[in-house]
Amino acid sequence: MSQALLTVKNLSKHFPIKGGVFRRTVGQVKAVDNISFSVNKGETFGLVGESGCGKSTTGRTLIRLLEPTAGEVLFEGKDIARLARKEMQAVRRDLQMVFQDPYASLNPQMTVGELIEEPMKVHGLYNKQERQKRVKKMMDLVGLNAQYITRYPHEFSGGQRQRIGIARALSLEPKLIIADEPVSALDVSIQSQVVNLMDDLQKELDLTYIFIAHDLSVIKHISDRVGVMYLGRMAEIAPKQKIYDQPLHPYTKALLSAVPVPDPKVKKERIILSGDVPSPSNPPSGCAFHPRCPKAFARCKTERPQLLDIGEEHFVACHLYDVDEG
């Protein structure tokens, strides 16, 4: 059994809604609402769901780019959600993030060399000569020509810019990288190159990933285990093959039914969900998915389902699998 590098317990991130003349808090947007999961050392944990389900907020809250409202984030057994700023700075070396839009996350006034060197300078690592040597090594690792070291981000393609972002994250030798939709802004032809690069880097450097995406085919290619999110809550967690071959939650089944099959002879039944995704500022009572669920019954409207252990590392938050229901 692999050892958990990161364990998330009852994590929530709520944003206040201000209203009135005095800008008082009149409500909460429950972007992440009491979720729990773990990530084992050396694995890729895929986090998937529709836009607005809270997966990117989860990623940012894990490394405290956003402060958690409640819950624990245990990294190597230490609750980083409660660390002071100085202690968190030290931990940040081990926790890095690759962002969705490589152009927006790179300072356009800095050269590639400066961008990759900057995290090392912030953390006080190596002398200037060693940093320069390491910058070239990082560029080589991600498939960028070291001759481009003095070029600026606008001189690169989207795929190359994402490689710069990955090199920048790798410069600190992190243990865990959170990749927030790292290929969704790229052309389809470039997406597979970046995913394959991350796969190769993981094997070479013994990295652990949380890979956030809305594209189930990308998640299938790179993940070992998958967590499916809906409206800030975790609907299902399982090893990749179980999610794709034996999905249990009605939402997971609907998501998978929408994935195109490359073989035109294979007929696939599409599950069409009724209604729109509810607002996280006013989530439904009980199971958040019940207004759109074809299998919903009375209990779903009143009681929030717990994440049940079905066995073989398969967890699902659905009353259909609760033995107490009889």
Rank of each mutant, 00 (worst) to 15 (best):
P108D: 09
E87K: 12
I164F: 05
D79E: 10
K301T: 14
P174M: 05
C318M: 04
D224H: 15
K13H: 12
P174S: 08
G71P: 03
F22V: 13
K30T: 07
E43T: 14
L205E: 02
V277I: 15
I177M: 03
L6V: 13
V112H: 03
L320H: 01
K137Y: 13
R168L: 08
D180V: 05
L5W: 00
L95P: 05
V73C: 07
T57Q: 08
V316E: 06
A31T: 13
L231S: 07
N145M: 10
G124F: 00
P284T: 05
A298G: 01
D140S: 14
E269R: 13
L256C: 05
S279I: 11
R93Y: 02
G311Q: 01
R64W: 02
F297K: 09
T44Q: 11
G54P: 11
D263A: 07
V266T: 14
M139N: 02
G159R: 00
G49V: 07
L144S: 11
L83Q: 10
V8T: 11
V8I: 15
H14P: 03
A31D: 06
V73F: 09
V226D: 00
D140L: 06
G113L: 00
I63A: 11
A169V: 11
K128E: 14
Y209T: 07
D324L: 09
K55A: 06
P278W: 09
I212C: 07
L11D: 13
V122L: 14
R161I: 08
R24N: 15
S12G: 02
I190T: 06
I164L: 06
P262A: 07
M138V: 06
I17W: 09
K128W: 00
A90G: 05
F45S: 06
E303A: 10
I63P: 00
P16V: 08
K240Y: 01
Q109E: 06
D94Y: 12
L83R: 03
R131Y: 09
R299W: 06
F211K: 05
I190F: 00
D79C: 10
F211R: 01
Q202S: 01
S217R: 13
L83A: 15
Y321I: 02
E313H: 14
R168D: 09
A298T: 12
K128I: 09
E173K: 14
D200K: 15
E325G: 10
A296P: 07
A146F: 03
N145P: 03
F315Q: 12
V8C: 12
V261I: 15
K175V: 00
L5V: 10
K253R: 13
H123V: 01
A296Y: 09
K18F: 15
R131I: 13
K268W: 04
K41A: 13
I116D: 05
G42D: 04
R60L: 15
V188R: 02
L74P: 04
F156W: 13
R60W: 03
M97W: 04
I243P: 01
D199F: 10
P260D: 00
A167K: 05
Y321R: 04
V21A: 15
F297Q: 08
R64T: 07
V218D: 06
F297S: 11
V8M: 04
E173L: 05
G326M: 10
L62W: 04
S157W: 01
E87F: 11
D245G: 00
D200C: 00
V218F: 04
P283V: 12
A90V: 12
G227Y: 08
G20H: 07
T25S: 03
